[in-house]
Design a protein around this nucleic acid. Sequence first.
DNA 1: GCTCTTTTTTTCGAGCCTCGAAAAAAGTGT
DNA 2: ACACTTTTTTCGAGGCTCGAAAAAAAGAGC
Lengths: 415, 415
Amino acid sequence: MTVGIRHDDLRRRNRAMVISAVRRGGQTSRTGIAAITGLSHSTISSISSDLIAEGILAEARNEPLALKRGRPQVGLTLEPKAAVVMTVVLSLNFLAATLLDYAGEIVAEEQRRLDTRAMPRKQLIDECVAIVRRRLDDRKREGRRVLRIVLAIQGITDAPARAMLWSPITPHTDIAFADILEREFSVPVTVENDCNMMAVALRWRDPERYKDDFIAILLSHGIGMGLVLKGELFTGTHSSGGEFGHMIHRPDGALCRCGRRGCIEAYAGNYAIWRNARMMGEDDEPVDDIDEADMRTLAQVARERDGPERQAYRKAGEALGFGLGSLFALIDPAPVAMVGASTAAFDLIEPALREAIAKTAGGHHSTSISFDTEPDQMALLRDGCAMRALTFIDNDIFASGNPAQMELAAGHEMA
Amino acid sequence: MTVGIRHDDLRRRNRAMVISAVRRGGQTSRTGIAAITGLSHSTISSISSDLIAEGILAEARNEPLALKRGRPQVGLTLEPKAAVVMTVVLSLNFLAATLLDYAGEIVAEEQRRLDTRAMPRKQLIDECVAIVRRRLDDRKREGRRVLRIVLAIQGITDAPARAMLWSPITPHTDIAFADILEREFSVPVTVENDCNMMAVALRWRDPERYKDDFIAILLSHGIGMGLVLKGELFTGTHSSGGEFGHMIHRPDGALCRCGRRGCIEAYAGNYAIWRNARMMGEDDEPVDDIDEADMRTLAQVARERDGPERQAYRKAGEALGFGLGSLFALIDPAPVAMVGASTAAFDLIEPALREAIAKTAGGHHSTSISFDTEPDQMALLRDGCAMRALTFIDNDIFASGNPAQMELAAGHEMA
DNA sequence: GCTCTTTTTTTCGAGCCTCGAAAAAAGTGT
DNA sequence: ACACTTTTTTCGAGGCTCGAAAAAAAGAGC
């Protein structure tokens, strides 16, 4: 049973609402916030003066919001110096860390290539710890306390966002990154699934198109998905869930990277398209990594002539289409964003995809389903992590005007 | 953006919490409620004395709750006379209406057989209106106002629970039952999917087993599903969703009742099992209805010898297993309840089901997934509707001590 | 340049709500 | 009968939001 609502919860929630309104709206006046939240002007006035005094919001005295009669609106903005967050992205052979201020501006960045698949467990962990340490020591941080680290991992994470359970980028499993980094740096950490963070980013980037319900599908070596339903990120009950790529397309079908058979990924992942285009057997062990240039060449050949290459893309489209059809049977159709470098070949995939989806129960209005493509997954990923970290600070730290918490945030060095 | 929290919301939520604690706990003391909700004793005292004065709760003076030292606890119960709700169940060739008091006890019942499939649209509607009118006129109602009607329909309903969009029980589509009944009787109505109501009922009936995440699958002429995730009934974005039976098992496979091909239902529904057992073609038009006795005979034959009958059940198990595997890839494994008369043959289905699920990504620990069977779907359905209606009254009418609402509830005759 | 009008923001008192402490109530044990 | 224990109610304090009114900060008009 949910716990009863106390009096102080009330203030906390309304503070959170004010912060959220400013984060969404950019520069927003008190009157605007009152309109959005439905709270009275007096309440907004009281809360915002508190937040300004606490150094969370700031008044943007420079540019007036509107040129009309009457007292001009004073825009409220997020105070960049209020906090700093760090995002860490761990993908196949790639590690990146970014430091951002409270307003979401990038303060410092670092990217590295490394051979994640060959690394021993300890070295993989140490690389992550090291990159975090270097960015924490970055002088551009200017002593502002890092209040949150969000680590996005390609693979499955656990439901409390504490650990990586399984990942295609390493043979090792069950790495409790959150515990490890928290022990090391005394900053709260969460570990998130990469596709989920992409979905979060899409929502912030284009709230018109990606409103309350949409699907982000990553077309890459493997197939991933981030799902937002009713305004909430959809996750599994025990894990990050949403493993669209491992729904079954054909029972006992092609061999998947996960060791099982017939998964959607075993038809639509880069390795599967490659395998089919090269007319290898469906039982052949998936190759480890395919150069992006090779995939581009493959797509070009498929565009030029009707051969096994074009067939391979057709099979990918078919798998994705039937998979989406099954998904739509569960959740109803929703806008779809195709993310990743392989979306460059989406023109080869789409016809078969639409054909397949039209054969399914969820495909009722298959022509009206929109597919957008977004090739740059890394930028999306970083933005998603940043918003995840910042909204955590908004809701769980700054919303409760708890003096102890605030002091921590203001502290110039960490424990 | 969610609207800000006002002061009166606070009381309303805490009132709802008190009512909910009593509905769950049966006879509960004020102290117990304070412990469950985390609210202070003074708050509980104040709220419960209000609720008693308003005739929503009552003190159960008869039996003491515990035999220990100190002032004995006074049990609070739901006041049965506070309201009355009606449930209406519309299934294939069957219509039932039940009147229940605020404590959930049945006041009056009526069941009818009718040929839903052959009925014109108007007649189907009229039958529903008529059964509601008869039960509203029932003298056992004793003038207590009916505050809610919940209509459960086998088929797809829309997300706001206002209309039936499609159903296998009738060729007619898009019937706005909620509007029709509300116009007729001036009582709020919702239209719910039958399997969703079964899931609701399971949760109330056995909260230990069916906690926050579980799946109810209806094995019947068709295949339906009710899904509870994170304590919430899972629905689609536009419709009741969760059409597990129409996820794709085999692309371009067997002909389904819905007109498409390869749906799970086209292998696991009674008509599919029948079709396979009789060695008819997978393209053969599904039969309309199969006698329950015939299905029992079929199962008996399948148990006795290894022939097409047993194979048919194997295929059903396989379809359900791969389907659950795909579902588990999205939501992670959860307890499953198999509901309906056809669960009598679950012993024939289970081996192939477990075999299939073990081949999928979600089937990691396939042996640990529990399958319960619950043959009596009608009782479950009625209970689910009743709880749906009653909790609506709890949360949306009685929780807000709105005098206007309360007066309506107390009124002895309807508008 | 001054006053009037308009719009935004702050101030102030009223009304609720929850909480903790203390008091009252209603039994059991001896 | 009296002491003890546990539940429930009462009461005053402290917070929060709200509406109304006041204050602030411009543009418009002359």
